[in-house]
Design a protein around this nucleic acid. Structure first.
Lengths: 354, 354
DNA sequence: GGCGATACTGTTAGCGCTAACCTTGACGGC
DNA sequence: GCCGTCAAGGTTAGCGCTAACAGTATCGCC
């Protein structure tokens, strides 16, 4: 199937140029240069530093490139310039809207600046994250965006040996050497619990799933708020390693009933759990919030529409993505970002379910 | 901040080797080779073709590489081997779960084989798709996965000039030269409409949003089924360019009421619209399905939990991703896939809302 | 008329890796 | 002992691009 050397006829007019696109069948910069009658570097500049080429020639180069179907080879460019124009982004899950919206923020910031995101999914596992970091380092990314702050020891080694800047998203780091953009998950947990206390609930439960550091921080906020009120009771806390889903939220209502729980309110660590709980309460005829109050976290789109609507805490995930990417752009430009730790805050949203 | 040329001391023992990692600060293959006392090509083989290196030496190479923090440079590898081990994947939206699950199927198939996905979001625009194709061709992808079949003329030119294989997802193509994996959207629309007719509904409405080709195909299926029954009425079709959302579904119920629509059933082109409609009916006291039947499309997770539960058509999106990726792997291996057009079918799910 | 400054384009070398070929030595069959 | 074969590793060249420096005009100024 190889087409190399198929043409034995010498073409003496062409001096040293090899036949166009020896391997891949694609035109190269040299092919374009030859056609225009200039050198390759000028073609390179016409694309990368247009201000260095006189407009008329630049236009001729671009037109010729277009007509030849020339597309720059990113691998060659990255190799020669030691800049990959690529940012590696690691998120725990792609089915969780929270991270998808963060990604959207990152994209909206990076793409106009010519950077591309290489997306990796860690499935909430630091080991998988380590593996992905190793894999993505092969692409010599100009920057890294990581979710959370719990990395394996090996991953930390990679990161500190790395010259490319790294920004941590979602959680905030106190370490002055690290960069982070996020909000205080602990405060979120505290905010909601304080609200429930203010509404008069006294036997407040907490359902924690996935058990990732952010969930546990919310649990901490819940616990601290209840401890301060002298109302913390370990038996009203459920910890499950499963991933968050509507189905699991519904199942939790069944379980609470089966266990004869005395909770007058339940704070679910995530909105989809809370939505499932709402649906199941409706099905079982449990009146919300009279018999049982239900609260969620994250403010997913459906939460404003369920019956009753869901009290929750909105997290600024799109903004987190944007700001983290902006911080990274600063760092990649060699500039120091205005802040090394950016708290974007939370918005408490009281609705009908509490 | 630059550390280049900091060490002026010559080391005469080293003959022609330049100082380690001249630009990026990272170890190269040659650095590892020198340390082990072998040539670079053997290091390359230890990683890429392990069976060509005796186990003992291979282990020594891998250990040394590890201890030096060596990570292969993907750009150099891609340039030298003309294989990027990268597949470009273009989807219309990242916030639509349908495509996120397709992505998951693609990942699960590609990653174990060493391929990586470069993800692009077209926002349902063929022009943006064209732009993304151009951008991603710079990465010399070994294959392409595209959503749908409506591409711009220029995009078609790129694709046909390309030697890398392309597979189209979601919709099916009749063209024998193209490869596609999906299901018949038209059949989905017909299936649901036939069901509604069988249940005795006669004034069936259709709400089409986004107006992408798949939505329009569903609309076609709806129209054909109703025309066959002699019940098609253009005034019961709503076409909106907006993107699908719960909020819009709720708003549509308000609009139908305001317009005094006589529909006894409404078929929404997407589940989140239908969910929004269900929520709004509940809020407004419209009994579903007695006063108004509601149907959706795609079977999103919440649809099995709303009150009433939502009648819908499940699309095999995860399987589509897997099979499309598998087909591409075959093609990239130079093998012909068993089928060039793979219909994965649909599953009709009757629930309480109709 | 000589010097420097400015604007544009070219030359050279090499980024880090791998394809294709080459060398070496061990082994076995006749 | 000659030849072929195979296994294990090395040599050479070059993938397509860009950094760094090097021309070559053109212009202005004293």
């Amino acid at each position: 199937m190889t087409t190399r050397g198929g043409d034995g006829t010498a073409t003496p007019a062409v001096k040293t140029r090899k036949p166009r696109s020896s391997r891949t069948g694609r035109a190269t910069m040299a092919d374009v240069a030859e056609r225009v009658g200039i050198s390759a570097i000028t073609v390179s500049r016409a694309f990368k530093r247009p201000e260095l080429v006189v407009p008329e020639l630049r236009q001729r180069i671009l037109d010729t490139a277009q007509s030849m179907g020339y597309v720059p080879n990113q691998a060659a460019s990255a190799l020669a310039s030691a800049r990959s124009m690529t940012v590696a982004v690691l998120i725990p899950s792609m089915t969780n809207m929270v991270f998808v919206e963060t990604l959207a923020g990152i994209h909206d910031m990076l793409l106009p600046r010519g950077y591309r995101a290489l997306i990796g999914v860690t499935h909430y596992s630091p080991e998988e994250e380590e593996r992905l970091i190793r894999t993505y380092l092969q692409f010599q990314p100009d920057g890294l965006l990581l979710t959370g702050t719990d990395h394996t020891a090996v991953a930390r080694t990679y990161l500190s040996a790395l010259s490319s800047p790294t920004v941590h998203m979602m959680e905030l780091l106190d370490d002055p050497d690290s960069l982070s953009v996020g909000c205080s998950q602990e405060e979120g947990g505290r905010l909601m619990t304080t609200h429930l206390l203010a509404r008069g609930y006294r036997r407040i439960g907490f359902v924690a799933v996935q058990l990732d550091p952010r969930t546990l921080a919310r649990l901490d906020g819940y616990r601290h708020a209840l401890e301060e009120a002298g109302l913390y009771d370990e038996t009203r806390v459920w910890r499950l390693p499963d991933r968050s889903s509507i189905q699991l939220g519904a199942a939790m209502i069944d379980r609470l009933m089966a266990e004869g729980s005395d909770c007058d309110a339940v704070f679910f660590c995530n909105d989809d759990l809370a939505q499932g709980a709402l649906f199941q309460c409706q099905r079982r005829g449990i009146r919300v919030p009279d018999q049982l109050a239900i609260a969620g976290f994250n403010d997913l789109p459906a939460s404003a529409w369920t019956t009753p609507t869901l009290t929750t805490v909105a997290t600024p995930r799109y903004a987190i993505g944007r700001h983290a990417a902006a911080m990274l752009l600063d760092l990649m430009d060699g500039k120091d970002p205005p802040q090394r730790r950016l708290d974007l805050g939370l918005t408490f949203i009281a609705r009908e379910s509490t």
